[in-house]
Each structure stands twice: as structure tokens, then as C-alpha cells.
Design a binder for these strands. Structure first.
Length: 461
DNA sequence: TGTAAGTCAATAAC
DNA sequence: GTTATTGACTTACA
């Protein structure tokens, strides 16, 4: 019963995806003075047209599994084709800032990896895509914004009137108020390449450093501990995301048959990460599939060595590597023992393969022909992907959130208009995935074996 | 208390 | 001017 009703309101919703947003914009002059963004943020609920309309959260909860990759892809296309910017789209449709939109579009996480909140933007995007009129509306908005901007410029030029900045906010944040809030704002910390490199090395050795290690790192690099902590948080999470997109891409390639080569299209996602990402998140990881573990550690050594593969790229950059003295490869070493013994909660649920084992680089094996290494490398890769694959296949409907009630019927699907969802599903039967899953099993096996025998420190399960 | 997830916002890159 | 990157912050959770 309620279901049909909800579907009804959902349908309405689709018809007028974000009326309120628009109204809010149109109702008053398009003056972002009161960041519509931020106010739609906290209370998230999409300012839907009153009555029975479901809140975005409800929608999210009811939503069938969406193909985040497909959605973002389409959004990117639409935005590009219509020359719409991420900022406008983000602020008006998603209630997010440009940077977040960029990130979201470039590195969407798979649906099943998203929290309810994380799914929200995707549902919004889907709804937005569903109604072609929305593009028009957004374009109108763009025009209006432009008009308003011109107006402002005019009035401020011809009218050197005092009504200047007050409202429009946009670029004043910085320019207009030179040194108003007496440095309330902390200057943004920008890590030097050498510092990043050092941190990466430390990460390779210990993705989850102990407070002590962190402190040491901070001291050696002359950074605040909070900066180091933040760096590790960010790095881990970004690496995870790179993994996700790999998973997605692998999946889509496996099924759709490369025809569409998303990676190629989105241009940067894969390639950039693969190659250039020198700082790139996964470069660092990419390198040691089985990471720090097999390769690095076996050297007994110095991260210098370990850093090799991934860092290669980067190495070319900082000419003054010598200066990179900061993290004497051994840095984290000192309290290694201590750390290893630490009672740390088992990291990412995804298991060792993910948290610990950096993103594998398919090309890796080429380097060393060492059986172990290449095997490890291969495994690493498999592990990551297969891990992911397995994960998804392991969660048949689990992928749908626990709260996502027994999958809504097709009505909902049509609401969200997703052919992709189905596609995503079949990708699970995909032989490639099966293979990966099998591969993963064997990897896990081996790792466990290794774990029980030696390198207790490295292999944390 | 530590971690993950999600985001903001400054700023670098194009 | 737009997009990408990334350090910092907030929130939720175990």
C-alpha cells in the first residue's frame, strides 16, 4: 500500500525534481548570499514540494541499487554537452560545492559502498537526469546568474554604490575582505613533495601508524601531528576510492565489453591514477601489491628501495631528492615492534587486501621476475579487484542497504530509470568476476598461510 | 578513541 | 573561468 503511494509521490518528484531548489533560487534574486548550499546541507532533505513528497532520505532508502558510475558518466556528458559547470550543478542540484562534485563525478564509489548519506547525491543526480527539462532549467539558471552578475558589475561600476559585496558572496570571500577576520582562517598547509613522499613511504610501511609513529613522523617532517594524522586519513580513504573505481571499471569492462571504455572517456580516472598519480594516490599503492610486505620488507629495507616502483614517477620530479631526507626509510621503524603489537582493530572490513595492500599495479610484475614478487603482485591486483568483486558478489542483495527494504519493485526502478542497475547485476555472473573471486580465494589462502608462518607483523589479519 | 565516510574550501592546474 | 587536488573538519559508528 504505502509502496504504491510512495511511488506516486516519487513520480511527482521526478517530474519536478527540485522545485524547491529552483524556487529558492528564483524566489529571491540569485544571490548566494545565503548559501543555499549550506542550508540544504545540514537538513539535507531536498526541499521538495511540500506535502507528501518523500524526503530525499526516504528516497535514498527506497532507491534500488544505482549504477553510480553510469550516473556520473551521464551527468558529466550532460554537463559538458550543455556547457554547464560543476559549481552550478553542485550548488543547485546536489547541494554540494564544486570540489565535491568534481570528486564525485571523477571517482564515484560503487553503490554498495556508499552510506545513506553518500547515496544521496547519486539519487539526486538520477532524478535530475530523469527529466530532460532539468537541463533546461539549469541553463536558465545559468543565464540568470550571468545576468545578475552583469547587473552587479554594472551597478558597482557606474554606481560605485555601497551595496557592493554584501550579498553575492561568491568571490568576495577572499578579495573583498582583505584582512578582516584577523587570520581567523588558518593558512592552508601545503605539503612539499618531499614531505608527501616521506609520508607515502611511511604509509607503505605502515598504513596505520601508531600515535608514536605519527609523532615521530611529524617531528621529522616538521609538521603538526594533526597534519600527519589527517594525511593518513585522507590518503587511506583516497586510496580506497581508487580501488573502487578500478573495481567499477573492471566490472564495466568485463561486461559491456569495453565498447564504452569508460576510463578512456572520463579520461582521467584511470590513466591519471595509473601513471601520473605520482602523488597520486594509487601510485604509491599501486606499486606494491602485496605491498610493503613482500617486496618492501623483504629488502629489510629502506623504504628507499621500497619506494622504487611507484615513486619512480615522482622521483623524477623532485630533483632535490637528497633533500628528502626527512623520512629516513626507517622512520616508522623504531616503534615498529611496538606498533605491530598494538591492539589495533582490524582495519577496513574489506579485509587486509584492501586497507593494507595498496592498489595493485597491473604492470608491476614486469619489474621483478622474482617469483614471489610477481606472484604477489599478481595477487595483489587480483586481491584488490577480486576482493572488490567478491565483495559485491558476496552481497547479492546485501549490496542494497540493510535498510533498503526488500528491493522495490520495478516501479521504483522505472522511477529511477535505470537500466544500469540490471547491468550491474549481471556483471556479477560475469565469468571474469568469478575468476577474480576464485583468484581472491587462493590469494587469501596464501596470505593466511604466510601469516601463520611468518611476518606476523606485516600480515595483519 | 580511532577510523571511515562525506564534505568544505583553498588553491593549483588547465 | 572551470575543474582537479588535497588538507582539514564533521559526523557516525564500533
Amino acid at each position: 500500500m504505502s509502496s504504491s503511494e510512495s511511488v506516486k509521490s516519487l513520480t511527482e518528484l521526478v517530474q519536478q525534481p527540485c522545485p524547491a531548489i529552483e524556487t529558492s533560487k528564483e524566489g529571491k534574486p540569485p544571490e548566494p548570499s545565503d548559501p543555499p548550499t549550506s542550508d540544504s546541507q545540514p537538513t539535507t532533505p531536498l526541499p521538495l514540494s511540500g506535502h507528501s513528497a518523500l524526503s530525499i532520505q526516504e528516497l535514498v532508502a527506497m532507491s534500488p541499487e544505482l549504477d553510480t558510475y553510469g550516473i556520473t558518466k551521464r551527468v558529466k556528458e550532460v554537463l559538458t554537452d550543455n556547457n554547464l559547470g560543476q559549481r552550478l550543478f553542485g550548488e543547485t542540484i546536489l547541494g554540494l560545492t564544486q570540489g565535491s562534485v568534481s570528486d564525485l563525478l571523477a571517482r564515484p564509489k560503487p553503490w554498495h559502498k556508499l552510506s545513506l548519506k553518500g547515496r544521496e547525491p547519486f539519487v539526486r543526480m538520477q532524478l535530475w537526469l530523469n527529466d530532460p527539462n532539468n537541463v533546461e532549467k539549469l541553463m536558465d539558471m545559468k543565464r540568470m546568474e550571468k545576468k545578475a552578475y552583469m547587473k552587479r558589475r554594472h551597478s558597482s561600476v557606474s554606481d560605485s554604490q555601497p551595496c557592493e559585496p554584501p550579498s553575492v558572496g561568491i568571490d568576495y570571500s577572499q578579495g573583498a575582505s582583505p584582512q578582516p577576520q584577523h587570520q581567523l582562517k588558518k593558512p592552508r598547509v601545503v605539503l612539499a613533495p618531499e614531505e608527501k613522499e616521506a609520508l607515502k613511504r611511511a604509509y607503505q610501511q605502515k598504513p596505520y601508524p601508531s600515535p608514536k609513529t605519527i609523532e615521530e613522523l611529524a617531528t621529522q617532517l616538521n609538521l603538526k601531528t594533526s597534519t600527519v594524522i589527517n594525511w593518513f586519513h585522507n590518503y587511506r580513504s583516497r586510496i580506497r576510492r581508487e580501488l573502487f573505481i578500478e573495481e567499477i571499471q573492471a566490472g564495466s569492462q568485463g561486461q559491456t565489453g569495453a565498447s564504452d571504455s569508460p576510463s578512456a572517456r572520463s579520461g582521467r580516472a584511470a590513466p591519471s591514477s595509473e601513471g601520473d598519480s605520482c602523488d597520486g594516490v594509487e601510485a604509491a599503492d599501486a606499486e606494491e601489491p602485496c605491498g610493503p610486505t613482500a617486496a618492501t620488507k623483504s629488502q629489510g629495507g629502506p623504504a628507499e628501495v621500497a619506494a622504487a616502483p611507484a615513486e619512480r614517477v615522482e622521483a623524477a620530479r623532485p630533483a632535490d631528492k637528497a633533500k628528502a631526507q626527512p623520512l629516513p626509510s626507517g622512520t616508522p621503524g623504531p616503534d615498529d615492534a611496538e606498533d605491530s603489537g598494538r591492539p589495533r582493530p582490524p582495519p577496513p572490513p574489506e579485509g587486509p587486501a584492501e586497507g593494507r595492500v595498496p592498489v595493485p599495479n597491473p604492470a608491476a610484475p614486469a619489474a621483478g621476475e622474482d617469483a614471489t614478487t610477481s606472484a604477489a603482485a599478481a595477487e595483489g591486483h587480483g586481491a584488490a579487484q577480486a576482493g572488490a568483486a567478491e565483495r559485491s558478489s558476496a552481497l547479492p542483495s546485501t549490496s542494497a542497504p540493510a535498510h533498503a527494504p526488500a528491493r522495490r519493485p520495478s516501479s521504483l526502478q522505472s522511477l529511477f530509470g535505470l537500466p544500469e542497475a540490471a547491468g550491474a547485476r549481471d556483471s556479477r555472473d560475469n565469468p571474469v568476476r568469478k575468476k577474480k573471486a576464485a583468484n581472491l580465494n587462493s590469494i587469501i589462502h596464501r596470505l593466511e598461510k604466510a601469516a601463520s608462518r611468518e611476518e606476523p607483523i606485516e600480515w595483519e589479519f
